[in-house]
Design a protein around this nucleic acid. Structure first.
Length: 188
DNA sequence: CGTTGGATCTTCT
DNA sequence: GAAGATCCAACGG
């Protein structure tokens, strides 16, 4: 059957858990650098593990912006992490990408050769794609970002599991990944 | 293999 | 003052 066409805005303006699953297989580039998203995590507005839980602050204000915009924050004082904003107060963390475009640029940014380790983790993704706080709030479907929705339904090839590195709401399985991918941050 | 601790800084208590 | 949506190198088995 023919896939229904929806705009990127419509794509992101849904429940973060649905968007997180649907983002697997999407293409994300920054200044032409990037590849296929293979791992995500959903953070909902009513989610104790979400930065937005407890209301809007200066750090998380991008999470209350337009669906489809970027939310970038610093993690552990060292790393940057990139999210796609969904419904207000919710977002999807981009945890891993299969490198495809401008591999040598990513290798240089990361100081690593093995494709396996270029984008296999949220901090690594931002280092490889050179994403920092200056991208916070920018729309993902406008330059320097490029976002392309996945080509087809792939429900059977997507895995779900518990989110990584959090201490609250640890039981829900809101981490999603492409089955069999060599570029996940961890196995499911 | 697996586990541990250090780096480094913003946010909230 | 402590915790945190992480990464990496060093260590031990």
């Amino acid at each position: 059957m023919v896939q229904a066409l929806i705009t990127n805005r419509q794509f992101f303006a849904r429940d973060a858990c649905v968007v997180a699953r649907d983002m697997i297989g999407a293409t994300l580039l920054v200044h032409g650098v990037g590849g296929i998203i293979v791992e995500t995590e959903a953070y909902r507005a009513d989610d104790p593990a979400s930065h937005s839980f407890g209301g809007r602050t200066s750090r998380n204000s991008a999470m209350f912006g337009a669906p489809g915009s970027a939310y970038v924050y610093r993690s552990y004082g060292l790393h940057w992490c990139l999210n796609a904003v969904c419904l207000p107060g919710s977002a999807v963390l981009v945890r891993a990408i299969e490198p495809q475009s401008k591999l040598d640029l990513m290798r240089a940014k990361r100081g690593v050769d093995d494709l396996r380790f270029l984008c296999s983790g949220p901090g690594r993704v931002c280092q490889a794609l050179a994403v920092d706080a200056s991208y916070d709030g920018l729309p993902l479907d406008q330059l320097p970002f490029q976002f392309k929705q996945p080509p087809e339904a792939r429900a059977s090839s997507i895995l779900a599991g518990r989110r990584i590195g959090i201490s609250k709401a640890v039981d829900v399985e809101w981490r999603f990944g492409l089955a069999g991918s060599l570029y996940l941050s961890r196995k499911f």
